[in-house]
Design a protein around this nucleic acid. Structure first.
Lengths: 187, 187
DNA sequence: AGTATTTTTTACCGATTGGTGTAAAATGGG
DNA sequence: CCCATTTTACACCAATCGGTAAAAAATACT
């Protein structure tokens, strides 16, 4: 049945993901990818088809890794605690690498790509999760939770941005904590 | 004194700025720049030195254009009204292009460039302006305004991100208004 | 008008881009 | 052990990248 592969698919995806994460899609060349993954161009193409397909797969991998975080928003009972835990953990996990999803929406080469559509869909899904938790939190009142859901979900941009700017992590945590307390704490 | 230029420097900078804004630094090629500005490669290099220098100049131009907005934070008396007006206008002016400064901090080719350092400095300056206005607003109290200043200045990332995602502008305005009312309105 | 000076045009540079064709190397099943 | 099959390595592709040298075209000043 022929020679066996010299690499582990999942490891290659992981390495490619980190490369894309650090450098962006366009700025990560095939040379970069071969250097980082250790396997050569032809093997990359045999396994993944093209640079863009590899990126899509890497994005998928990224989302898979983020599942535990997203799961926080699905815990029963829905409510503000889920949101607080989610954003607190997001802020805590911030790094100077930023967020791959956030970074990808600005990539020209991806503007009309499947990846870009996927990222937008992911964000809308996040927004929807926030809405559901807010509705549960404020059930009974007739308040429109849409603006608050948007405000909260957009904080992933703030957090990613501060991370990219290398803002002190303690300060990031404090600022998010402040936001959450102002929005949710009984006053 | 020889032939006169048949372009206007300021117009070229303006056009280059828009190209960089839309596509990013790395993804905007010299071909793009010559096509958009109308003048050829050699003239571009005679006038601006290099692609990176042109980008720095374009970034400068962008900041100049943003001066009226920043001026809102310098109005006397300092206080929350300045911040409210600033963020309200920023949200109102959002476009799908996002913010050139925000977009630039993620560009690998600029990571160790003068442009990147400039952008970081700009953000810190913004944060400081927020702090001064908050100190004025809360003078007398011993509250540490740093986290709030960081939270507020980081909203430029949220706003830019929502713009990039093509979120309905009305919704963006509402979400920012909500944040401001929660932070500042007497309760 | 003549000419010195500047700008623009054109052709070109080596390096790198994403992607492929081909042949050698390696390893499975019989 | 042998051969079919797979994966690898290597050479190569046209296109494009940022940048430049040199000559041609245009114009302002005397």
């Amino acid at each position: 049945m022929g020679r066996s592969k010299n690499y582990v698919r999942e490891e290659v995806i992981e390495q490619a993901m980190h490369a894309f994460w650090l450098n962006g899609y366009a700025a990560t060349s095939l040379s970069d990818l071969t250097a980082i993954t250790g396997l050569n161009k032809k093997s990359l193409y045999n396994e993944f088809g093209s640079k863009e397909e590899l990126f899509n797969i890497a994005l998928d991998h990224y989302n898979q890794q983020r599942m535990p975080l997203l799961a926080l928003l699905n815990r029963q009972p829905l409510g503000s605690k889920n949101i607080i835990d989610f954003l607190t953990k997001l802020a805590h996990d911030t790094s100077t690498k930023g967020c791959l999803l956030v970074l990808s929406i600005s990539e020209r080469d991806l503007l009309e790509s499947a990846a870009n559509r996927q990222v937008k869909k992911d964000f809308q899904g996040l927004q929807k999760l926030f809405e559901l938790n807010l509705k549960a939190e404020f059930k009974g009142s007739r308040r429109d939770v849409t603006p608050m859901a948007l405000l909260l979900s957009a904080q992933i941009f703030s957090i990613a941005g501060m991370g990219k700017l290398n803002v002190n992590k303690d300060q990031i945590n404090k600022s998010i904590k402040l936001l959450l307390s102002q929005l949710f704490e009984a006053r």
